[in-house]
């Protein structure tokens, strides 16, 4: 499919320039909202959910959810969803992105934030191209999750009625566009408290005499 490659790169650079470490997604949420509107998405199709009120760690904002009604011959087909996450790891704070050939690199000694501003760029480019090229498509939900990097919380706490119950979803988070990831590990996190018996290292423990 043809699309405006320069506009897509410009969008990615724009999102990389906005700091938005995990739990602090308000600014990148505003930037995404502005870029979506510039791409032709009406303001009333874009909103934030209240997932952050159900996340047990402080989170500035909810997930950003966009509803694109279906168009043309496919407007009645079942709804599908495209998703990504809009937070970065804390190591990305202060990144200075620069285009170098067919790469984007970082001029600061931080992580860059391609994880996951790349996904943000893909979803906004999709919305902009569907509008600009007036392409036929089924009803589409776009979901930009918060707090992926600190416990997958946005996706964990999103309500299916808020994303309008799509029949399938495509998530963007990784390296190669040819990788079709259909499974993932599960995990436990555990903690243990060990209670010993405080005593003078040279006395009761060894039953010896008390020395300083």
């Amino acid at each position: 499919m043809s699309f405006d490659i320069q506009a897509a790169t410009d969008r990615l650079m724009r999102f990389l320039a906005v700091e938005g470490v995990t739990g602090k997604e308000a600014a990148i949420g505003r930037e995404l909202t502005a870029a979506l509107q510039e791409g032709g998405v009406p303001a009333d199709a874009i909103r934030l959910d209240d997932a952050n009120t159900r996340i047990p760690v402080p989170t500035e904002t909810g997930n950003l959810i966009v509803d694109l009604p279906g168009r043309g011959a496919m407007h009645n087909q079942p709804r599908i969803m495209f998703m990504t996450h809009m937070d970065t790891v804390p190591l990305c704070a202060g990144a200075k992105p620069k285009v170098a050939g067919r790469k984007i690199v970082n001029q600061a000694k931080t992580a860059l934030g391609g994880d996951n501003r790349c996904g943000c760029g893909v979803l906004v480019t999709l919305a902009a191209e569907l509008a600009k090229q007036k392409l036929d498509h089924p009803p589409i939900t776009l979901l930009f999750c918060v707090r992926e990097e600190s416990g997958l919380w946005g996706a964990r706490r999103v309500k299916t009625q808020d994303i309008r119950s799509p029949i399938m979803a495509f998530n963007y988070d990784g390296g190669s566009a040819s990788n079709v990831t259909i499974g993932a590990v599960g995990a436990d996190r555990w903690q243990v408290e060990i209670f010993g018996r405080a005593s003078h290292a040279g006395s009761r423990r060894s039953a010896g005499s008390v020395r300083p």
Binding site: M81, M83, T84, V89, A111, G114, D115, N116, C118, G119, G121, V122, T160, I163, S165, P166, I167, M168, A169, F170, N171, Y172, D173, G174, G175, S176, A177, S178, N179, V180, T181, I182, A184
Partner: peptide, 13 residues
């Protein structure tokens, strides 16, 4: 919601 995940260009995140 059955969900497939793709990459989008990130490396050494």
């Amino acid at each position: 919601v059955p969900t497939v995940t793709f990459g989008a260009g990130q490396n050494e995140p």
